Computed example of a mutant assay.
Amino acid sequence: MRFLMLVCVDETLAMTEADDTVEQWLAETGGRRLDGHQLRGIEDATTVRDHGALITDGPFADTKEWIAGYDVLDCASLEEAVTIAAKHPLARFGAVELRPFWEE
């Protein structure tokens, strides 16, 4: 079962606070992480609405937390995905959201 893991943190967090432990987390996933990457800050976001008729600089929602990165996990169960997500270095600073992919 594949999951999209969204890593959400407070916008004031210095991303370097967890950088040194990400490599360790990657090693601990046991190959369950298929892909992932850190995203640029909200100041570089663009929101597209109404089929492109409305384009806005910045994120869609006005919130203190923003999506800092994502990972795609391939796990046997939701419980396994939760265990891996809970160990992510940024989980202690914000929230990690798991969303299953629609399986075809």
Rank of each mutant, 00 (worst) to 15 (best):
A86C: 08
A61G: 02
E79D: 13
S77Y: 03
T21Q: 11
E43S: 09
F101M: 15
L54R: 13
L6E: 03
G58N: 03
F93N: 06
V9C: 11
S77T: 08
E65T: 06
T21Y: 01
A91T: 08
R99C: 10
G58K: 11
G52M: 13
D57K: 07
T16K: 13
V72M: 14
L73A: 06
G69D: 02
A61P: 01
K64P: 05
D35W: 08
E23D: 08
L34R: 13
T29W: 02
L34C: 09
C8I: 08
T16F: 04
W102F: 13
I55R: 11
G94N: 00
H51E: 10
A91M: 14
G52T: 07
H51T: 06
E11T: 02
D44Q: 10
E80F: 03
Q24G: 06
T56S: 09
R2V: 10
Y70D: 06
D10I: 04
A61H: 04
I84G: 01
F3T: 05
A45Y: 05
K64H: 07
E23Y: 02
D62V: 12
A68N: 03
L54P: 00
F3A: 10
M1C: 09
V7S: 03
K87H: 04
A86R: 14
L13R: 04
V9K: 00
D19E: 09
H51P: 00
A81M: 12
R33W: 07
G52V: 13
C75E: 00
V7T: 08
D50V: 15
V96K: 10
E65G: 00
E65W: 02
L54H: 05
A76W: 00
M15I: 12
F93G: 05
A91S: 13
A61C: 09
A86L: 12
E104Q: 06
L98G: 02
V72L: 15
R33M: 15
R33E: 12
D50L: 15
G58V: 10
A68Y: 01
G94L: 00
A91F: 05
G41D: 01
T12D: 10
E28F: 03
E28N: 11
W102A: 13
E23W: 06
H37T: 10
G41C: 03
A85V: 09
K87L: 13
T56W: 01
E80Q: 12
E11M: 06
I84S: 03
E103Q: 13
C8G: 00
F93S: 06
D10R: 01
A68E: 01
V7Q: 09
L34P: 07
K87Q: 10
A85Y: 01
F93L: 15
A61D: 04
W25C: 15
G69R: 00
P59G: 04
F60G: 09
P100W: 07
L39P: 03
A86N: 08
E23R: 12
D62H: 05
F93H: 14
R32S: 12
